[in-house]
C-alpha cells in the first residue's frame, strides 16, 4: 500500500491559500478586509461611512435641513465643512447624505441580485429556448444606456430614493443575469455535478448544493463593484432631481446645488464630490481584494508574488512561481 502523506503539510503557508473554503473561514474574511493596505484603507473608509449612516443624529452637529446660518461660509470650528447656499451645515448634510447613499446602494444591488441570479440560473441550467428568450430580454435592457433607462423607469414610478434605486437595480440586473448564466453553463458541465446526479440527487438539490455555490462567487464580486456604481447612480439621479427629494440631503443633490454656485463658493463641490469618490474607490478596492481571496488562480499568483517579495527582501533571488508547490510522489 502506498503511504499517504498529507501534502499540505509540506506546502508553504501562503500556497495553501486558494481556499474555496476561505468563503466561510475567518482567515478568508480577514484577508478580504484586512489583507493589504488597500483593503485596510477601504475597510476603514466604509466602516466610517457606515457609522455615519447609522449614527447620523449623533454625529451631525445640526439638523441637515436647518438653514438659520449665513450661506457660503468656509470651514470653521462651528461649521467644519462650511455652509451651503441656503446656510445649512455641510458636515451635517454629508453625514445624512451617507445614509441615503448606503441605503441606495443596498437597495439597488439587492434588487439586481434578486432579479439577475434566478434568471441567469434558469437560463444557464435549462438552456434551449428558455435561455434564448431570457437572454434576448436581457440584451434588450442592456442595449439602452443605463442612465437613460433609469431616468425613464423613475419617471414612470415617480421620483424618490427608493423608486430611483429600484430603477438602478433593474438596470443592473441583466449584467448579473449574464454573469450568472455563463458561470452556470461552465459549472453544470463539471464532473462533480455528474457525480452528484449519479447518487440520485434530484435536479433541485443538485442545483442548490452544487451548481449555485460553485457559480456564485464571481457574481458576489461583481455585486461588490456594483455597490460603488450604485453610489454614482444615486448621485447622478439626485443630481438631475429624480433621486432623493428636496430638502433631504444626498451627495448628488448637494453636488448639484453646489455646482450652481461654483463661481461664488468653489469649495462647496468638494465635500460631496470627495465623499462619492472615496466610497466608490473603497467599494472597488474591496471588490478587488474579494476576488483575490475567492479566485484560486488569482490568489495563487498573489501567494507567489508575496513569496517572491519576501525572498528578495531577504536577499535571495525570487523563485519561479509554482515551482515550489509541486508535491513529490507519494
Amino acid at each position: 500500500m502506498v503511504t499517504l502523506d498529507p501534502v499540505s503539510s509540506r506546502l508553504p503557508d501562503a500556497a495553501r491559500g486558494p481556499a474555496p473554503s476561505a468563503w466561510r473561514s475567518r482567515r478568508g474574511l480577514r484577508q478580504w478586509l484586512w489583507g493589504d493596505w488597500r483593503s485596510r484603507l477601504a475597510t476603514c473608509v466604509l466602516a466610517l461611512v457606515l457609522v455615519m449612516a447609522i449614527a447620523a443624529p449623533l454625529i451631525a452637529r445640526y439638523s441637515p435641513t436647518a438653514q438659520d446660518f449665513i450661506p457660503f461660509r468656509g470651514p470653521s470650528s462651528a461649521h467644519w465643512l462650511g455652509t451651503d447656499d441656503l446656510g445649512r451645515d455641510v458636515w451635517s448634510r454629508l453625514v445624512y447624505g451617507a445614509r441615503a447613499s448606503i441605503e441606495a446602494a443596498g437597495i439597488a444591488v439587492c434588487l439586481a441580485l434578486a432579479i439577475g441570479v434566478p434568471i441567469g440560473l434558469i437560463a444557464g441550467f435549462r438552456g434551449g429556448w428558455v435561455d434564448a428568450v431570457l437572454m434576448r430580454i436581457a440584451d434588450t435592457v442592456l442595449s439602452f444606456p443605463g442612465i437613460i433607462l433609469a431616468i425613464a423607469i423613475t419617471a414612470v414610478l415617480g421620483p424618490g430614493l427608493v423608486h430611483s434605486m429600484l430603477a438602478v437595480g433593474i438596470v443592473f440586473s441583466p449584467s448579473i443575469a449574464r454573469l450568472m448564466r455563463s458561470q452556470v453553463l461552465v459549472t453544470k458541465e463539471r464532473l462533480y455535478v455528474d457525480a452528484a446526479v449519479s447518487f440520485g440527487n434530484p435536479p433541485s438539490r443538485t442545483v442548490a448544493r452544487h451548481i449555485v455555490p460553485n457559480s456564485i462567487q464571481p457574481v458576489v464580486i461583481q455585486a461588490t463593484f456594483m455597490l460603488g456604481l450604485a453610489v454614482i447612480a444615486e448621485a447622478s439621479l439626485s443630481f438631475v432631481g429624480l433621486g432623493v427629494q428636496y430638502p433631504s440631503p444626498s451627495f448628488g443633490g448637494m453636488l448639484q446645488s453646489a455646482s450652481q454656485f461654483i463661481s461664488v463658493h468653489p469649495f462647496g463641490v468638494y465635500p460631496p464630490g470627495v465623499a462619492i469618490a472615496l466610497i466608490v474607490l473603497a467599494f472597488n478596492a474591496l471588490g478587488d481584494s474579494l476576488r483575490d481571496v475567492l479566485d484560486p488562480l488569482a490568489s495563487t499568483r498573489r501567494a507567489a508574488r508575496l513569496a517572491a517579495r519576501a525572498s528578495t527582501r531577504r536577499g535571495h533571488r525570487p523563485e519561479a512561481p509554482g515551482g515550489r508547490h509541486v508535491p513529490e510522489g507519494h
Binding site: 468563503w23 464532473l191 462533480y192 455528474d194 457525480a195 452528484a196 449519479s198 440520485g200 452544487h210 460553485n214
Partner: peptide, 22 residues
C-alpha cells in the same frame, strides 16, 4: 430512475474534477 441508479455507481476519470471543490 433515482432509486435504480443508486445500484450503479461510477468512479470518474479525473479525480480532481469529480469532487466538489467546496
Amino acid at each position: 430512475l433515482r432509486r435504480q441508479r443508486r445500484r450503479v455507481q461510477m468512479v470518474f476519470q479525473d479525480p480532481h474534477e469529480s469532487l466538489d471543490p467546496r
